[in-house]
């Protein structure tokens, strides 16, 4: 299940700025990429939809991801927090556009492929709204505010996830990248309880959960393994055998080629070798992917080598 965003936009030959804001383009790009590389799924993954709709200032670019302007973060001034409410219905804005993307993907792929929705996790969304550096210091300066902020971002995530499930998503990806910046103490107190509520809420709505935390999560693997996610993405800085030993044999793991060194800069032969090594470490319940997004200038034959490996070894990754 390789994550494709800018790569998919390039496959369709459209600027990524348009891909981010127009569900019809996203859908065409995802379907075309899945067809070209024989992928098992399509996804509406993108970032900062929630922050944009809530009123955060974003810098938009023609052909690269948008970025939240940290200096002007929506809740840089805590007083603004009291004035903003979570949207009751996810119908307009970028979140509404993503929901329509789920609907259209479902129509396009029928039951042939898995359709993945996407929400920002409570910590990542809080970082977008408060500014990541401020949030990192709030854990120490104002724990009560962080709890309130995470309640808010959780509520937004649950409503957004629910809309996507009801529009046809089989699984919801939860991207909580900012969580990889904290240690086990902060993760346990501030992040885990809200991630757990989100996982439980998605399950209650009938969806499955894929947790994606970019970066080095080695010190919080134990907690991640207790969330009850259906899939856990493991980024490349984490040894896959460590993820397996800490999360146990029943956790399905996804990953974890290095997207740049292995997948972009490697060759089909080296990729096959790296995947074989990962297979030994992962054991059963393993889904082949890069640790994070397939970067845009990845040679097509390299990605094909990855999907070919997955198809060749498909039955071996299933539990006995």
């Amino acid at each position: 299940m390789p994550i494709t965003m800018m790569f998919a936009a390039d496959i369709l030959g459209v600027k990524y700025g348009r891909y981010l804001r127009d569900h019809r383009i996203l859908v065409e790009a995802q379907v075309k990429t899945a067809e070209m590389f024989v992928l098992d799924y399509v996804s509406v993954i993108s970032s900062s939809s929630e922050a944009a709709d809530l009123g955060a200032r974003l810098q938009w670019y023609d052909d690269q991801p948008s970025a939240v302007i940290e200096e002007g973060a929506l809740f840089a001034d805590k007083a603004n927090f009291a004035r903003v409410k979570a949207p009751e219905l996810i119908s307009g804005g970028l979140m509404g556009d993503r929901v329509r993307a789920v609907e259209l993907l479902r129509q396009r792929v029928g039951k042939d492929l898995l359709v993945e929705g996407w929400v920002e996790g409570p910590c990542a969304s809080a970082a977008d709204l408060r500014g990541i550096s401020r949030l990192m210091m709030d854990f120490s300066d104002d724990p009560g505010f962080v709890h309130d902020l995470f309640d808010f971002t959780l509520e937004v995530a649950i409503r957004f996830a629910s809309s996507q499930i009801h529009s046809g998503a089989d699984i919801v990806g939860v991207g909580d990248a900012a969580a990889s910046l904290v240690g086990p103490r902060i993760y346990k107190e501030f992040v885990w309880p809200w991630e757990k509520k989100l996982v439980d809420a998605i399950h209650a709505e009938g969806g499955r959960v894929r947790l994606h935390i970019c970066g080095n999560t080695r010190r919080i693997l134990g907690g991640i393994g207790e969330l009850g996610c259906d899939l856990v993405d493991v980024d490349f800085p984490v040894p896959l055998e460590q993820a397996r030993s800490q999360m146990g044999p029943l956790q399905t793991l996804t990953g974890n080629l290095d997207p740049v060194r292995d997948l972009r800069s490697g060759s089909p032969e080296s990729i096959t070798q790296s995947l074989e090594a990962l297979r030994q470490k992962a054991g059963a319940r393993w889904i082949v992917a890069a640790g994070c997004e397939v970067v845009r200038d990845t040679p097509h034959d390299n990605l094909r080598a990855m999907t070919k490996f997955a198809q060749t070894h498909a039955t071996e990754s299933l539990p006995a």
């Binding site: 120490s140 910046l181 902060i186």
Partner: peptide, 14 residues
């Protein structure tokens, strides 16, 4: 040594 993380680094920097 992964005993400090980004929050601790930022606090020390401040």
């Amino acid at each position: 040594a992964e005993e400090y993380f980004v929050p601790e680094l930022l606090l020390s920097g401040r």
